[in-house]
Amino acid sequence: MIEGKTLRSDLQHLSRALRTLHKALLDVETQYFGNVGSALEHLQLVTSHPHFAWLQKLSGVISTLDECLDDEEALVVDLERRFRTEVEGLVGPLPASDDDFRQRYNAMLHDSPEVAMAHGALRKVLAQLPAAPRD
């Protein structure tokens, strides 16, 4: 952790960066999908349609991170490293923890300037977190 920053602050920055990225990915996937109807219909599609299923990995990371932020006892020093490793397993540069997610994600990086910008912002946040020790 950088001097003067708190664990909570670092994880809040990560949560915001992940949410921005997630929204950009959803926006592009929604464009690919086509007309989705109302906001409620869109929510139902995002949570249950196979077209959006690959994004559930990222949704799960965000949900777990937010649960940790809500629970003071869950905020332990190694948590930053754990989340950095988990996120980098999805978006890189660590080896892919989910090949399908990584393949779709990399395609989005090339297709969407918004996703690329959100990825760059996420990388800056991740660079501030401790990395897992190298073997």
Rank of each mutant, 00 (worst) to 15 (best):
C68Y: 07
R84D: 06
R104L: 15
S112P: 13
L90H: 03
Q103P: 00
G92F: 04
L58W: 00
D111T: 13
R84Q: 11
V125C: 05
N106Q: 15
D98K: 07
L90S: 01
H119K: 08
V125T: 13
P93L: 06
L58R: 01
M108Y: 10
V125L: 08
R102F: 09
D111V: 11
D111N: 11
T85F: 08
G89H: 02
V77L: 15
M117Y: 06
K124Q: 13
E73Q: 12
D71N: 14
D70A: 14
L69P: 06
R104Y: 11
R104T: 11
L65G: 00
A96W: 05
A121I: 02
L94P: 03
E80M: 15
E86C: 09
H110M: 15
L109R: 13
E72V: 10
L79P: 04
G120Q: 14
E67H: 11
Q103D: 14
D111H: 10
M108W: 08
E67W: 08
D98G: 04
R123H: 09
E114I: 01
H119E: 01
P93K: 07
E114H: 13
K57M: 07
V125E: 06
L94F: 09
E88I: 02
S112G: 07
V61Q: 03
V77A: 15
L94V: 05
E88H: 01
R84A: 12
R84E: 08
K124V: 10
C68A: 12
L65R: 01
R102A: 15
M108E: 12
L75C: 07
C68H: 13
L94I: 04
R123W: 03
P95D: 10
D66A: 02
T85S: 13
R104K: 14
L122Y: 05
D100A: 15
T64A: 12
F83D: 01
D111Q: 13
D100Q: 13
L90E: 03
F83G: 06
E72Y: 04
L94S: 12
S63R: 08
